[in-house]
Design a protein around this nucleic acid. Structure first.
Length: 267
DNA sequence: CTAAGGACCTGTCGGC
DNA sequence: TGCCGACAGGTCCTTA
């Protein structure tokens, strides 16, 4: 499940090999994912100007516009020259590469869209700040939450408040900050929001440092309950002992999402 | 306007 | 063993 750290990792590895290369064409194996694929033919012959990221969208910029790639929850991009498998949906060809850049997405929650230059795609128009930007501070988040009555966890997962904080990182950051995920967002003090922002940046940066290790199907060495990387202290550990106080972790459904937390350590 | 809930999709897992 | 429902996730859409 790609979250922000994984998209950032993909961007960093893709950028050097794509920038200044020429787009040669696309081969689609279905008409689209969550939305239909765009017509790629106008892009043929154009050079990649940049590869960037906004929220969880990977942006490949050309002179005539930008390709927006979202990996949904199970999408991945990789260079390939084999024949496509069941879950491979799109190949993009570039100069300088023998293989194609292949989009695989078993659950098909992803999307590939094109936005003409000089305009802003509707998916990007109303997004909140990037959490890793230095300008994203406790004061900024506190101000944005001033009128937000929903639980704090729902609020920080709202892309209009701040982008890129998915269920895993929201859960982990709230545990580190000692904040109960159910507390109404606008009732939390400025100093606690300050602390929360620091932890959001920390968990995301650690995720990037791990190369985006938030893979749900990660296979541990032994059949331990929950085969997640040990870096997660609460996510996916409902009922198991809290790493701080050893009491069993609770699970609440907030905004339709599982929210694991410690009733003793998070207030 | 906000808030809540469903749809989308399929691999995995627990229960019977 | 096999079947079946529940669940996971981000985003968009509908409903209240």
């Amino acid at each position: 499940m790609p979250e922000l750290p994984e998209i950032e990792t993909v961007k960093r590895s893709l950028s050097p090999s794509l920038v200044r290369q020429t787009f040669l064409g696309a081969q689609a194996y279905r008409t689209g994912l969550r939305v239909p694929f765009p017509d790629f033919t106008p892009l043929i012959g154009q050079k990649v100007l940049s590869v960037s990221r906004r929220s969880k969208y990977l942006l490949i910029e050309f002179a005539s516009g930008t390709l927006l790639i979202h990996l949904g929850m199970s999408g991945s991009l990789s260079w390939s020259n084999g024949s496509p498998g069941k879950h491979d949906h799109l190949d993009l060809s570039f100069s300088g590469h023998e293989g194609v850049l292949r989009l695989r997405d078993p659950r098909r929650f992803g999307s590939v869209q094109f936005q003409p230059g000089g305009t802003i795609h509707s998916s990007l128009a109303n997004l909140g700040p990037e959490p890793l930007e230095p300008s994203f501070t406790g004061a900024v988040l506190h101000a944005r939450l001033a009128k937000s009555r929903p639980p704090i966890k729902v609020a920080i997962m709202d892309a209009q408040v701040v982008v890129g904080v998915g269920n895993i990182y929201a859960t982990e950051a709230l545990f580190r900050a000692g904040i109960d995920p159910r507390v109404p967002a606008n009732t939390i003090s400025k100093s606690r929001i300050n602390r929360l922002v620091g932890h959001i940046k920390d968990v995301l940066n650690e995720g990037i440092a791990n190369g985006g290790s938030t893979l749900r199907d990660f296979h541990g060495v032994e059949g331990q309950v929950g085969t997640f990387p040990s870096t997660f202290k609460v996510y996916g550990r409902a009922g198991q002992p809290c790493v701080k106080c050893s009491r069993p972790l609770s699970n609440a459904k907030l905004g339709g999402r599982a929210s694991v937390f410690c009733e003793h350590c998070q207030k």
